[in-house]
Simulated scan of single mutants.
Amino acid sequence: MVDLSAEMAELWASLGAPAAGAGRIVQFIAARRGEGTSTVARELAHFAARRAGRSVWLVDLDLLRSPQHAAIAAEPERYGPLSKPAGASPDGSAFFTIRPPGADAEGRPIPDAAWLAAHQVGAGRLWVTRFRREALQGGRSVHVLPTPGYWRALRAHVDLIIVDAPAADRSRAGLTVAPQMDQTVLVVAADQSDVSAPAKLKDAVHGAGGQVSGLFFNRGQVEAPAFLKALLP
């Protein structure tokens, strides 16, 4: 695995540390799959929790796969072992809904928030979410919502919320939640030479009501190279 410690320190500095008592939400998204967005989001969360001493939640928008939970679980020696699942909503709200609604064995409705678990990573201040896909049966599907309730509730309890969005070429989840994010960072792989896809994604984020605050040039440098700087505001 490539060591991104130096890049994470620079990225953290460029984003600016969250103010005391005011949780910040930063989304990472790429135009196309394979750009390394999940790695960047996970490593920044790890850095912020361990080196910057902040409480951090890593929220995975790829609900049906939950790759962040899987990646952290696969490397306990690096990140720490995962705790037993806990509730991931401070107030019972959720950023998604299940259709048709789920019901327990006695026919009582299952609230949407019950489908999302959170696991503490090691003994530190990092938590990662996991959607309970194994309980999704009977032709049910999950839909990400544009509503602010969950994000507002979570930011009241956490210093930094890092949102890992699936690539825009396979999901609109990142665009759906973009208006609720304080910052959205576009991730571009180091060998990417075509700027059209990131440019279109930047416009799409703005069109959805979000703000693109920067670009992370993955496996190269935090600052965008000259040919990509024109994409940024």
Score class of each variant (00 low, 15 high):
V2F: 15
L4R: 11
S5K: 13
L11I: 02
S14E: 15
L15V: 00
G16N: 04
P18V: 06
A19D: 13
A19K: 14
A20Q: 15
G23S: 13
V26T: 06
I29N: 04
I29C: 10
A30L: 09
A31D: 10
A31E: 05
R33C: 08
G34F: 10
E35D: 13
S38C: 07
E43Y: 01
E43M: 02
H46F: 07
A52E: 14
G53T: 09
V56M: 02
V56T: 04
V56L: 03
W57F: 07
W57L: 07
L64C: 05
Q68W: 08
H69N: 11
H69R: 15
A70Y: 10
A70L: 14
A70M: 13
A71E: 09
I72C: 05
E75H: 05
E77I: 00
E77A: 04
E77G: 12
R78H: 06
P81I: 03
L82D: 02
P85H: 08
S89G: 02
G92H: 10
S93N: 09
S93L: 05
T97R: 14
T97D: 14
I98E: 06
G102C: 05
G102Y: 07
A103I: 05
D104C: 00
D104M: 01
A105N: 08
A105R: 15
G107K: 03
R108L: 06
R108K: 13
P111S: 09
P111D: 10
D112H: 07
A113R: 10
A118V: 08
H119S: 05
Q120N: 13
R125Q: 12
L126I: 03
R130G: 00
R130D: 00
R130M: 01
F131A: 00
R133D: 10
R133C: 02
E134L: 01
A135Q: 13
R140C: 01
V142R: 09
V142K: 09
V144G: 06
L145D: 11
P146M: 09
P146F: 12
T147V: 11
P148Q: 02
G149Q: 15
G149V: 02
Y150G: 06
Y150A: 08
Y150R: 14
W151Q: 04
R152Y: 11
A153H: 13
A153S: 15
A156M: 13
H157K: 15
D159G: 02
D159W: 08
I161C: 07
I162F: 01
D169H: 07
D169T: 04
A173M: 09
G174S: 11
Q180M: 07
M181N: 05
Q183S: 06
L186H: 03
A190K: 12
D194L: 02
V195T: 13
K200M: 12
K200S: 12
L201W: 06
H206I: 15
G207Y: 07
G207R: 14
G210H: 04
Q211K: 12
L215K: 12
F216L: 14
R219P: 05
V222C: 13
L228T: 08
L228C: 06
K229P: 04
